[in-house]
Design a protein around this nucleic acid. Structure first.
Ligand code: FES
Ligand code: FES
Lengths: 150, 150
DNA sequence: CTATAATCGGACACAAATGTCTTAAGGAGT
DNA sequence: ACTCCTTAAGACATTTGTGTCCGATTATAG
């Protein structure tokens, strides 16, 4: 419902990276271990986020991934636009090609307000916010018991 | 976002069937043509809805599909439980196995109210309601120009 | 009974998402 | 220069979603 696995991994990883000291690259291996996610697959996702400009990557020793300068304030909406495609909120809930008041499906006018709430929520949450929440220790990023931060 | 193609087809078909005179079986072929959807695939979906007890099917001449007695008041939530699986609303938006206040991910308490709105919406809309809306001619069930009802 | 018309059921085909593996390339330390 | 550690890139495998096809079954009409 709502998000693909790929996007879920991406968000988890981004939040985790945001909890780590800025400027210190984080190893893909560590992220994967922390989130209990396939590391090779996660690498692909992170590489993509690099190409899209959200992350920086460094090879070799002391390498890894870290948030690009200023990207701590990236909203979930912006991040999801990169993983799900730029208009993943544009579609009609019944799958019609157009979703607008003029081409409304029978659910349109009921669905639209809810969709707006979802979008507002995603636009309102930044990686920074979520990272801080995680750092309080009250929330978990992975299935494991209660994620103690490294 | 939110629904699989299969569920979208299913809902469209159910609404269309609900707009037709009760008790008169509707041909799969006609539904597929009306919705502009692959008929063989739609047949599978309808067969499944039969097995789950939402539709009745009749073979041979004058055959087809129609809503089972009393099922006009089925909510979208009930219908989606059949196509998406019984707990498609249970999962965490970040993909955690458990979604509860005790095992909250950093988005949990913000997401939960929105999720509740979605569920309330789906529970509040019945096939009957949606069919009536379509019959006003103001809403469309398919991509085609403006669906004139048969 | 026969022909016709529709669903049923399963096998099959294709595509997209998810996950794995191997090799190449780049940077840090010695 | 050499070695080690890391990401980069692409090929490949697996799984799931989507879509097609065909023969079997069932019901109606003549
Ligand atoms: S037209 Fe269907 S949700 Fe807008
Ligand atoms: S735990 Fe993530 S949405 Fe509830």
């Amino acid at each position: 419902m709502v998000l693909s696995r790929t996007s879920q991994y991406a968000i988890q990883a981004l939040i985790y990276i945001a909890t780590q000291p800025a400027g210190e690259p984080v190893l893909n291996r560590d992220i994967a271990a922390r989130l209990n996610v396939p590391s090779a697959y996660l690498a692909k996702i992170l590489q993509n986020l690099c190409k899209q400009g959200l992350l920086d990557s460094f090879r070799g020793r002391l390498g890894g991934f870290c948030l690009r300068e200023g990207m701590h304030k990236t909203s979930l909406m912006q991040a999801l636009a990169l993983t799900e495609g730029p208009d993943f909120t544009k579609s009609c809930i019944l799958g019609l090609k157009e979703c607008s008041d003029e081409t409304a499906c029978p659910m349109h006018f009921k669905w639209l307000p809810v969709k707006k709430k979802i979008i507002a929520l995603l636009e309102g949450m930044t990686l920074e916010d979520l990272a801080k929440a995680v750092q309080t220790g009250k929330y978990r990023l992975a299935d494991l018991p209660t994620g103690a931060l490294a």
